[in-house]
Structure formats: C-alpha cells, structure tokens
Amino acid sequence: MSVLIVIPARYASTRYPGKPLVALRGASGEAKTLIRRSWDAAMQVTGVDRVVVATDDDRIRDAAQGFGAEVVMTPESCRNGTERCAAAIDAMGAKFEIVVNLQGDAPLTPAWFISDLVAGLRARRDVDVATPVLRTEGRALRGFLEDRRAGRVGGTTAVFGERRNALYFSKEVIPYTGKTYPDDADTPVFHHVGVYAYRPDALRAYGTWPIGPLETLEGLEQLRFLEQARPVLCVEVDAKGRQFWELNNPEDVPRIEAMLAEMGAD
C-alpha cells in the first residue's frame, strides 16, 4: 500500500521560463524557491513512502539537491508532468500502489488535499486516476474572472457528474454563471487543484496515447485521459479557511507571497 509523491519540474515553461527557481518570500521575509516550497509541502503529507523531484534540468537538480531533495533525472522529451511522472517511476524501477503528481507550481497545497485524494482513489477501484477539486467562494471566482478578462489564466476549473467522474476541465471559467457572489459565499464553480493520483498502469499507458484535440486546445494534460474514455475521479477537498493558488504567471508571485504572509508561513 505504498505511495510515492513525484514533483515534476522543468525550467523551460512556456508561460513562465525558470519558474521552479523563482524566489517567494514568506511571512518572515525569507525567500525560498518555488521548488523548495513545493518540496516542503510534499514533506508535510502523512502516509507517504517517498518523495522525489523529477526534472531534466541541471539547475533545478542542483537547487533541489542543495536543500536535501531526492532527484530523478527524466528525458527532455517529456511533454508534461504526467509523462514526467511516468518516466520517473520507470527510472526508479520501484513499485508503488499509488503515484501522486504534485506539480511544482502549487506550493500552497495543503497536506490534507493529498491525503484525501489518495483515500478517494483507494475507495474507487473502478477508476485509475483522481484529482482534487475545490469549491470556489466569491472572492476566488472573481479573481478567476478578472484574470480571464485580462487575458491571463488564473486557474483551471472542472465540471463533473453525479459519481464525481469528470465531464471536462477548462482554463475558461465553467460552468457559466452570471451571478455575483459575496466574498465568502459558495459558488457552483470548482477550482481544479493541479494534483493527480494514479495507479501505475494507467500512468504508464498515458504516454502511449496520442495527444488529442482537446488537450492541444486547452493545454491540459488530464484531458488525455478523458479523450481516451478513461474516467478521472474528482475528489472534493475542503480548504478549511486556507487560501489556495497556483503560480502560473509572474503576476501570481505577489499574490502567493501575500497568502504566505497571511498564513504566517516562513
């Protein structure tokens, strides 16, 4: 019943080159790189047997090893984090029940998101992939809409059916709602949290499938599973009053630093 967390990280991000090595200041003013903060988040998760950083870049390798992380070098040909996770488990030659992809741009991911995700996948033997979703409140939804109006992607949203199997993921804000919500009011929009849990066979199969038109249009790796008619379980998680945001653009740095300060996180 072993669990591996892989933190895929690449230097040549299209939207934000060098993103894993961007410094983020915490509440005390101490600056830590994004990859360090992502590693720290992974190390807070209980019930995990091993955590590794998977990269193809020597600069990221050196930075990660500098703070004590285990690093697995993966090919430059990996086109996204899921393919990099598959390459990592092949390179390690180890067997795990569940592999978690904690993408290196989500340092605010609470430990219980991952614990709940793993528990959700274990409870549904009919699915091989799971990902967390977080119901947005009015403040977060307004931020998503403002980002889209400015031509930025603030986050990915998800819609799912009765059994919580995903229907679609999009960088647009879906489903459409013309209503205005108070800051702390629940909305019908779910923020897709960029974490995945896979059974290893599904993870390895992923790289053998062609990239489909929806994945190409949206630039969302999880759509490959849907385009292959493979169910993706959406596990609803509770923020417990904590803010959550991913670092997608340079404009997100001050936003995340403000959240770190509000949380009192160094």
Rank of each mutant, 00 (worst) to 15 (best):
A94S: 10
E172S: 12
T14G: 06
F96W: 11
T14I: 12
P182C: 10
R139N: 08
F160T: 15
G143W: 13
M263R: 15
V129A: 09
G241S: 04
F225Y: 15
E83Y: 04
D128Q: 13
Q228R: 15
A42D: 03
V45I: 03
V45T: 01
T157A: 12
D58W: 08
A69F: 00
R36L: 09
A63W: 02
S115V: 14
T180R: 14
V118W: 02
G264S: 04
A150I: 09
D49G: 12
A158D: 05
R224H: 11
A205E: 11
K179C: 09
R122P: 03
A258L: 08
V193Q: 04
L223Q: 07
V51I: 01
T82I: 15
P200L: 04
L141H: 09
A158P: 06
Y196S: 12
R142N: 13
G154Y: 05
L141D: 05
Q228F: 06
Q65D: 02
A205W: 05
V153Y: 13
G68E: 03
R125D: 14
I256A: 00
T177P: 07
E218V: 09
W112V: 03
A54S: 13
E30K: 15
R135Y: 04
T136I: 06
G47T: 02
L217N: 07
T156K: 14
D186P: 15
S170G: 09
T187Y: 05
L34G: 03
D62K: 14
M263T: 02
P132E: 09
R242I: 01
A69T: 01
Q44S: 14
R163P: 03
L34V: 06
V3E: 04
F225S: 05
A106H: 05
Q103C: 14
D238Y: 07
A54H: 06
D128E: 10
I5W: 01
A123D: 12
L203S: 07
V195G: 05
Y16I: 04
V253Y: 01
V53M: 00
R15L: 13
P20W: 04
Y198G: 06
V72L: 03
R204K: 14
A119C: 00
K171F: 10
V51E: 01
A42F: 00
T46H: 13
Q243V: 00
Y181N: 02
V22F: 09
I256Q: 02
V133C: 13
T177R: 13
R242V: 07
D57E: 09
R142C: 11
R122E: 02
I256R: 02
R37L: 12
L117P: 04
I211M: 15
P132N: 08
F190A: 05
A119R: 04
R59S: 12
F169N: 10
R25Y: 08
R59T: 08
R242N: 06
A261T: 03
P132S: 09
L108W: 03
D252T: 01
D186V: 10
K179F: 12
R149E: 15
L134Q: 08
G194V: 08
E162Y: 11
G29W: 07
L167W: 07
V100Q: 12
R199C: 00
R152C: 07
G138E: 05
G18V: 01
T177K: 10
A111Q: 12
V173F: 06
D266Q: 02
M43S: 12
N248A: 11
Y168K: 11
H191G: 03
F144Q: 15
G29Y: 08
S13Q: 03
T33D: 08
R15D: 14
D238A: 06
Q222I: 15
V159N: 08
T109E: 11
M73D: 04
E137I: 07
Y16N: 00
